[in-house]
C-alpha cells in the first residue's frame, strides 16, 4: 500500500512540490530580508533555516491530509475496511509515504539552506538530532492532518483548513523574525506557541549549543500534540461508520 501511495504521489508531482516549496520559502524570505536582518546583527541564513524545514514538513502534512480525503472519497478506505486487512495498515501506509516525502523535503530544504549560507556548527549528534526532531514534528503533524483528512468532506477544503493554522503559526513565530520584531502585545503569543519552541530548539541544535531550557517546552508541546492526534486517530480508525 505504501508503494501504491508513492506511485500516486510521484505521478501527481508531489515530490517535485516537496522540493520546490522549501526553495520558494527559502529564497522568498532570505533574499529580501537578509540585509534588513543583518542590520539587526542576525545571520539570516542560520536564523531562518529551522522554520524553512518546519514549513517543508508542514506541507508534507497537508499532502497527507489530501491523500486521506481522496482515499475516503474514492471509496478506497471503505473497501479496505471490508477486506481482511488490519485497520492500521492504510494509516501506516499513508504515514510511510508522508515520512518518505518529509525526508525528500527536509533534504531539499537543507540543500538550499547550505547554498544560502546555512551550516551545522555542532557535532554529528546535534545534526542527527536536528533531522530526527524535524522528522518527529513531521510525523506528529501528518497524523493530525490525516485525522482531519479522514473527517473532511473534500480535498480542497482539507488543504484550506490546514493552510490557515500553518500560515498563522508559521508567520507569528520567532522562526521568521526575532521576538523583538513583534509589537509588545503580540510577543507572548509569538514566544510561547509551539512553532517558536520548535524553531528555537532546532536553531540551537544547528548551532551546536542545545539547552534543556529551550528543548523541554518544545518536547512538551510535541508530546501533547502527539498524544491528542494519536488518540484522535485511534478513535477514527476504530469507528466503522467513518468508512461509510
Amino acid at each position: 500500500m505504501t508503494a501504491r501511495a508513492l506511485r500516486s504521489a510521484w505521478s501527481q508531482g508531489e515530490f517535485l512540490v516537496a522540493i520546490i516549496m522549501p526553495l520558494v520559502f527559502a529564497l522568498g524570505f532570505y533574499l529580501p530580508l537578509r540585509l534588513i536582518m543583518a542590520g539587526q546583527g542576525i545571520d539570516y541564513a542560520q536564523f531562518i533555516m529551522p522554520i524553512i524545514v518546519l514549513q517543508a514538513v508542514a506541507f508534507t502534512a497537508v499532502a497527507a491530509a489530501q491523500r486521506a480525503t481522496l482515499d475516503k472519497m474514492r471509496g478506497m478506505t471503505r473497501r479496505l475496511a471490508a477486506m481482511p486487512v488490519h485497520p492500521l495498515v492504510p494509516l501506516s501506509a499513508r504515514m510511510s509515504t508522508s515520512a518518505i516525502r518529509a525526508v525528500v523535503s527536509i533534504a531539499a530544504a537543507l540543500t538550499f539552506g547550505t547554498l544560502l549560507g546555512f551550516s551545522f556548527n555542532g557535532d554529528a549528534l546535534d545534526t542527527i538530532m536536528f533531522i530526527a526532531f524535524s522528522m518527529l514534528v513531521g510525523l506528529v503533524l501528518a497524523i493530525g492532518a490525516d485525522c482531519l483528512g479522514m473527517t473532511a468532506k473534500n480535498a480542497e477544503s482539507t488543504s484550506q483548513l490546514l493552510v490557515l493554522p500553518q500560515l498563522v503559526l508559521g508567520l507569528v513565530s520567532t522562526g521568521f523574525a526575532p521576538e523583538s520584531g513583534f509589537p509588545e502585545w503580540a510577543r507572548p503569543f509569538a514566544r510561547n506557541q509551539p512553532v517558536s519552541h520548535f524553531s528555537s530548539t532546532m536553531r540551537e541544535l544547528a548551532d551546536g549549543v542545545p539547552t534543556l531550557h529551550t528543548a523541554v517546552p518544545a518536547l512538551i508541546w510535541l508530546g501533547a500534540l502527539g498524544a491528542v492526534f494519536v488518540v484522535w486517530s485511534h478513535h477514527i480508525q476504530t469507528r466503522r461508520r467513518t468508512y461509510l
Partner: peptide, 21 residues
Amino acid sequence: LFPALMVLLFWLVLDRSVSAH
C-alpha cells in the same frame, strides 16, 4: 479571509524591521 489575514500577519512579522530599514 486569506488576503485580510495576510495583511495582519505580514504587518505583525515585518512592520518593525522593514519600517526601521
